[in-house]
Design a protein around this nucleic acid. Structure first.
Length: 368
RNA sequence: GCUGGAAUCGUCUAGUGGCAAUGACAAGAGACUGUAAAUCUCUCGCCUUCGGGCUUCGUAGGUUCGAGUCCUACUUCCAGCA
């Protein structure tokens, strides 16, 4: 069983430590999105230095390339990628369901590789097997994503996710018995925007022998707080909860932490960075805008990342306008640092009971 | 000096009688949430009450209902020959 210690509680919010074979994660924490076993534009050393505690890779992408077998041969994701800290994998469900022409059945999902059209099939069992081979510390159950936001589709997706969860648990246990390493399984809560479905899903997941929970299919919207309140009031307190895919907008992190989520992952920070949209305490700015041509101030005051400590907005603007690779590197360092540290500060503020103030202060300035 | 060829939006470029005029780049702005995303979208002669109006394809004339496109002269550039 994955060890999770809670140090402090404040309503549904909690500060804790997830103990994994590759080290501890102080929570709440932002987990970097390393979809293809790399955080785009960044080296693992840079990720480490900017303060990242964990990364999340994607089973779908790694099944296509280079294959779970190869990563297993390399000694697992941590060794393969030289990230010697905790690792997560997403099951691949989310990606597969976003592909065209997927054939979904009780058994699993048939799809074509977006790279070369090869036929693949992924089932709850094969996702578990792949994640064990990839060798991450924490695996997500293979879930089913609704094809629309309608109640009918959401409910169908949730039921399928629950059926598949049972199979994921069985397969996980089977693989666990013959494994040399310890790896853990999170169930995934579905239910869309319907709180009764969310409650049902949370209850179902809570009843299973899993190590933690992913909360999937969440979008920023009014009602996210209510939804999380519903779900996290039901999920057992002593197991960690991961809010899947959320973290591009700081408000999501505040709400997520406030209502009991422990970890987050999101492609937003690095994608925004590559596209020139950079976080500051006063909101995101587009560094490519002409007004930064002569701005010789740091991207953000009071930021101790490598980018802000050494370079100006004018320089970043120049790197982006000339399409230099370094533009994306420095921007990614900053954005990833910004989000990681925002969550770090949320954790610190929960510990010293200043969360409410920090939240109001941060959000009122950020969203001016 | 002679003989050819060429001059089109910031740049390169399409266009051989119906054209505010092609494409790319540049420029300006926007989007992005479990990454088919170093991607995508919009604007890009001037004005507009969004119907349209006005002025444009080296310069000046001409032919034609109509000219970026045809003719003449001039200017500049390129190539070849002197």
């Amino acid at each position: 069983m994955l060890k999770f210690d809670i140090k402090k509680r404040d309503g549904l919010a909690r500060v804790g430590v997830i103990h994994t074979p590759h080290g501890d994660i102080e929570t709440p924490a932002f987990v970097g999105a390393a979809t293809r076993a790399t955080v785009k534009a960044l080296t693992m050393k840079e990720m480490h230095e900017l303060g990242s505690q964990a990364i999340l890779a994607n089973t779908y992408h790694l099944v296509l390339r280079p294959s779970p077998e190869l990563i297993e041969k390399a000694g697992g994701l941590a060794k393969f990628s030289s990230w010697h800290k905790p690792t997560f994998t997403d099951s691949g469900g989310f990606q597969i369901f976003s592909l065209p022409n997927v054939k979904i059945s009780e058994q699993g999902v048939k799809f074509k590789s977006h790279i070369d059209g090869r036929n693949f099939e992924m089932t709850p069992e094969s996702s578990m097997q792949a994640q064990w081979q990839i060798g991450t510390d924490i695996h997500m159950a293979f879930d089913h994503l609704a094809k629309s936001e309608s109640r009918e589709d959401m409910e169908a997706a949730m039921r399928r996710t629950h059926q598949w969860l049972d199979r994921c648990v069985v397969e996980h246990k089977r693989l666990e018995k013959k494994a040399k390493t310890e790896q853990y399984l999170y169930a995934v809560v579905q239910g869309g925007t319907f709180n009764d479905l969310r409650a049902e899903s949370a209850e179902y997941c809570a009843s299973k022998d899993v190590d933690g929970f992913g909360i999937g299919g969440v979008f920023t919207a009014d009602g996210m707080d209510e939804m999380l309140k519903t779900v996290n009031s039901i999920l057992p307190e002593n197991k960690p909860r991961h809010l899947l895919g959320m973290g591009q907008e700081p408000i999501d992190l505040f709400i997520g932490a406030e209502y009991g989520c422990d970890t987050f992952d999101c492609v937003g920070p690095t994608r925004m960075a590559r596209n020139g949209s950079l976080y500051t305490l006063d909101g995101r700015i587009n560094i490519k805008n002409a007004k930064y041509t002569n701005d010789f101030t740091p991207l953000m005051e009071d930021c101790d990342c490598e980018c802000c400590q050494n370079y100006t907005r004018a320089y970043l603007h120049h790197l982006f306008k000339t399409d230099e690779i370094t533009a994306k590197v420095l921007a990614s360092i900053h954005n990833e640092h910004f989000i990681v540290h925002t969550v770090d500060k949320i954790r610190a503020s929960l510990l010293d009971s200043t969360f409410k103030n920090y939240k109001v202060e941060f959000l009122s300035r950020y969203y001016h």
